[in-house]
Amino acid sequence: MRTFMIAGVSAAALLALSACNSGEDATNTAVNAEATTADQAATPAADGTVVEVAQGNPEFSTLVEAVTAADLAGTLNGAGPFTVFAPTNAAFEKIPAADRQALMQPAQREALQGVLTYHVVPGRLTAADIASQAAANNGSVELTTVEGGILTLRETNGQWVITDENGSTSTIAMADVPASNGVIHAIDTVVMPN
């Protein structure tokens, strides 16, 4: 099983928005972080970084706000590539408002960075890559996040479910949103590190 190391991507990874599932198999798979250059070229690049793509989608406004509060925009605008499991606004709304507001305060910047970077994996991992890696590992794949924690992905009833280190789950609602420095997979629930 391959692990991935990412630098400085935290709660910003929460950018993963919970969009409607297209139902395609490719939508339900993810990319292997150690994909070859040829594999990476197969994923179309967009005209903006993961941050710019998120800024252009109103479903990611809370994520963009969190990335800014965590001072991670510069990192996520970097060369990457990054795979971001980005929570949508609806995903953030599942967190009690008082907790969300507290996390956005300057005194909590380090904690927010940890949450956001837990949503980011090094490399450009498409849904197909994730599916391929899972197929080689008894149906699941463990990805090491930039934060240093592990996310476990497994296909369940035609959807990719992410399990965090606390046993909580999130579903990839939309996969393979291209960016110039990576790929975004929108998720319906914020995942949390230990």
Rank of each mutant, 00 (worst) to 15 (best):
T3S: 15
M5V: 15
A7G: 11
A11P: 01
A12W: 13
L15D: 03
C20A: 11
N21T: 07
S22Y: 09
S22L: 15
G23P: 02
N28G: 09
A30F: 14
A35P: 06
A35D: 14
A38R: 11
Q40L: 12
Q40Y: 06
A42K: 09
A42F: 07
A42G: 07
A45K: 14
A45H: 10
V51Y: 02
E52S: 10
A54I: 08
N57M: 03
P58N: 13
T62C: 00
V67S: 10
G80C: 10
A86L: 02
A90D: 03
A91S: 06
I95M: 01
P96N: 10
P96Q: 07
A98M: 08
D99H: 12
R100M: 15
M104C: 03
Q105I: 01
P106A: 09
P106F: 04
P106T: 10
A107N: 12
A111P: 01
L112P: 09
L116P: 09
V120N: 04
V120Q: 05
L125T: 10
T126S: 05
T126R: 02
T126K: 01
A127E: 00
D129W: 09
A131S: 02
Q133T: 13
N138K: 15
V141D: 00
E142F: 12
L143A: 15
L143H: 07
T145E: 13
T145N: 03
G148C: 08
L151R: 05
L151V: 03
T152C: 09
L153F: 15
E155K: 08
T156P: 00
G158M: 03
Q159H: 12
I162D: 02
E165H: 04
N166P: 02
N166Y: 00
S170L: 03
M174H: 03
A175D: 02
D176R: 05
V183K: 08
V183I: 14
D188H: 09
T189R: 15
